[in-house]
């Protein structure tokens, strides 16, 4: 839709306040961020830094208290298939087979049956889940389930892919293979990806830019561009240097999170 280089996602002065009166919690405070078409951005931070809140604002599940999100040239007001989302585990529809999960979004779009079948078959092939097409999600491992979730999101052909800690529940090896798969898909389909994670290593491995967020109120602490060539070597000295820098930044916020938690217990 957009040419490479122009902003695909514009976050303008976004704040989000939960609750009211004395129990008000400022989850996001004046977030400004512009994401270019084809960019891979990671939102990184400890629990409570508002990274998922920001993603939900982009997805349209929970609109900002003030400010606005402009996606694909239009202000976000409702959830929609132009901002496909991959959730944490268990968001596949358990009553639908793998193939039915992937084709559901296409059926809603009223795409002709023959076209749906072909598209689903291509995606099954691409994500290497063809032999599971008639299985139900409960028969699949966590890694396979997330492959299906990615296929379901890709089926929508949306330029933007939102990912909410999609690999958080996976073991290290499965996680790495899915990260590689995701990078392959990102390059092939030229998606703009916003990826929420609390893993520093994961964010450096994947992102063009890492947005480090502060603990409550959620603000942007720093935006760290990663210009390491891909495929990235997690054992290289530059990777490790960046990891140390980021680690320090994130740990500062983690300490604030823990202090806050302890104070809440005392009250």
């Amino acid at each position: 839709m957009n040419d490479l280089g122009s902003p695909q996602l514009q976050i303008e002065g976004v704040s989000k306040v939960f609750g009211s009166g004395g129990t008000e919690v400022v989850a996001l405070n004046d977030i400004n961020l512009s994401i270019t078409a084809g960019e891979f951005v990671c939102l990184l931070g400890p629990s409570g830094c508002g990274k998922s809140t920001l993603l939900n604002a982009i997805a349209g599940f929970s609109l900002p208290t003030c400010g606005r999100v402009v996606a694909n040239g239009a202000e976000v007001a409702v959830p929609g298939p132009d901002r496909a989302m991959v959730f944490q585990e268990y968001a596949l529809f358990p009553w639908m087979t793998v193939a039915a999960n992937i084709s559901f979004g296409l059926e809603i779009k009223k795409i002709p049956k023959a076209e749906i079948i072909e598209k689903v078959s291509t995606l099954l092939e691409k994500l290497q889940i063809k032999e599971f097409s008639d299985r139900f999600p409960k028969d699949l491992s966590g890694g396979m389930r997330q492959r299906v979730a990615i296929a379901r999101a890709l089926a929508l052909d949306s330029p933007i892919l939102l990912m909410d800690e999609p690999f958080g529940a996976l073991d290290a090896l499965t996680r790495r293979s899915l990260q590689e798969e995701l990078l392959r898909i990102w390059m092939e389909f030229k998606k703009t990806i916003v990826f929420v994670t609390h893993s520093i290593e994961e964010s450096i491995y994947l992102a063009d830019r890492i947005v480090v967020m502060t603990f409550r109120p959620g603000t942007i602490k720093q935006v760290v561009p990663i210009d390491l060539p891909r495929p990235r070597d997690v054992a290289s000295s530059r990777f490790i240097t960046i990891q140390k820098q980021l680690s320090q930044m994130v740990m500062e916020e983690q300490m604030r999170f823990q202090k806050d938690e302890a104070e809440h217990l005392r009250v």
Binding site: A59, P79, G80, P81, M85, F87, A91
Partner: peptide, 11 residues
């Protein structure tokens, strides 16, 4: 989460 996923898919 099912409702969110479905709305995201356009349902």
């Amino acid at each position: 989460i099912y409702i969110r996923a479905a709305r995201n898919l356009g349902a």
